[in-house]
C-alpha cells in the first residue's frame, strides 16, 4: 500500500470518502429532519437550508414521555447484557478450557438458534408470557434479550478465552487456584477487553431491538423502539417528530460507543497484537 502512486492514493481516498458519505447520509438526514417542521420534513422537495426549530425535541422530551421509554431501554439493554455476561463467562470458560466431544456441536447449535426467524416463536412466547404475566414488562423483555444475545456472547467470549494460554491456567491450578479463582482472578482480567467489547455489542443489539419490544410491550415495559414507532400513527406520519425521537434514541448509544471506541477496537483486535 505504501508504494501506491499518487493518482492511486487519491482514488482510494475518494472511494473511502464516498463510502463514508453514503453510510453516514441517512443519519445526517435524520438529524437534519429532526430540526424541521413536520410539514417541511414530509415535503417532496428535500430541503437542506431552512430555519431550524426545536419543536420536535420539545414534543419528544416534554409531551411524549421520552424518559420513561429511555429508562426502559437502559433497564433492558444493561440488564440483559449483565445477565448474558454472568451466564456467558462460565459457559465460554468450559467450552474453551474443559472441552468435550460435544463442545463444537454445542457452539454450532447455539449459533444455529440465531438462524431461526424470531417471528417463528412469537406466538408461543406471547402465550407463555401472558400466563406468566410478563407481557408489557421490562423484565420480560430483558429475559428475551438475554436469550437472544446469549449465543453471540458465549461465542465471542469463547474466541477471546481461547487466546488465554492454557499454561497460565495450569500454573494457577498448581498455585492452588480453584475453578472460581481461575475464572475470576485469571481468565476474566486477561480477557477483560474482549468481555467489555462483547458487552458493548450486546448492549447495542438489545438497545436497537424493535421486533420483540413492539410485539410484547406496549407502555409499561416499552423501550425507545416502541416510542419511535409510535410516531407512525393512524393520524399520519409525523416525520420531524419521529426524526427527533429517533435521534434521541440513537444518541445515548452513539455517545457511549464514542467513549468506548478505544476499548471496542482493542477488544476486537485482542489476540492479534499479543
Amino acid at each position: 500500500m505504501n508504494k501506491m502512486s499518487w493518482p492511486g492514493k487519491i482514488g482510494v481516498n475518494l472511494l473511502a470518502w464516498l463510502v463514508s458519505i453514503l453510510m453516514f447520509f441517512p443519519i445526517f438526514w435524520l438529524i437534519l429532519s429532526s430540526f424541521k417542521t413536520n410539514a417541511l420534513a414530509a415535503a417532496r422537495e428535500p430541503a437542506f437550508i431552512f430555519s431550524p426549530t426545536m419543536a420536535s425535541y420539545v414534543n419528544a422530551l416534554v409531551n411524549s414521555n421520552y424518559w420513561h421509554y429511555a429508562l426502559n431501554s437502559v433497564y433492558t439493554a444493561v440488564g440483559s447484557t449483565l445477565l448474558c455476561v454472568v451466564l456467558g463467562v462460565p459457559a465460554a470458560y468450559s467450552m474453551a478450557f474443559r472441552r468435550s466431544k460435544r463442545t463444537d456441536f454445542t457452539l454450532l447449535w447455539m449459533l444455529s438458534t440465531k438462524m431461526l426467524p424470531a417471528v417463528g416463536v412469537l406466538v408461543p412466547i406471547y402465550i407463555v408470557y401472558k400466563n406468566l404475566h410478563l407481557l408489557d414488562s421490562a423484565l420480560g423483555l430483558t429475559l428475551i434479550y438475554t436469550a437472544m444475545n446469549l449465543p453471540i456472547v458465549v461465542w465471542l467470549l469463547y474466541t477471546y478465552f481461547k487466546d488465554v494460554p492454557g499454561e497460565i491456567l495450569e500454573a494457577a491450578e498448581i498455585d492452588g487456584a480453584s475453578l472460581v479463582d481461575n475464572i475470576v482472578r485469571i481468565v476474566t482480567p486477561l480477557a477483560l477487553p474482549g468481555i467489555i467489547s462483547t458487552g458493548l455489542l450486546a448492549i447495542v443489539l438489545a438497545w436497537n431491538e424493535a421486533f420483540w419490544a413492539i410485539n410484547i410491550t406496549n407502555v409499561h415495559g416499552a423501550t425507545l423502539s416502541v416510542f419511535v414507532s409510535g410516531f407512525k400513527s393512524a393520524r399520519g406520519q409525523f416525520w420531524a417528530n419521529m426524526s427527533a425521537a429517533s435521534t434521541l434514541s440513537v444518541l445515548p448509544i452513539l455517545v457511549a460507543g464514542w467513549f468506548t471506541q478505544r476499548q471496542l477496537v482493542r477488544g476486537l483486535t485482542f489476540g492479534a497484537v499479543k
Binding site: P165, E167, I168, E170, A171, A172, E173, I174, D175, G176, A177, I186, P189, L190
Partner: peptide, 28 residues
C-alpha cells in the same frame, strides 16, 4: 495438583500477565 506440594516452571513461563512480579510470586 495444588495438594501435591509441588511447584512447576513452564516452558512459556506462564506468568500472569495482568499481575506485577510481586503479585505473580505471591499468588499461591
Amino acid at each position: 495438583p495444588k495438594d501435591r506440594d509441588i511447584a512447576m516452571v513452564f516452558q512459556s513461563y506462564a506468568l500472569y500477565p495482568h499481575m506485577t512480579v510481586r503479585d505473580n510470586m505471591a499468588f499461591s
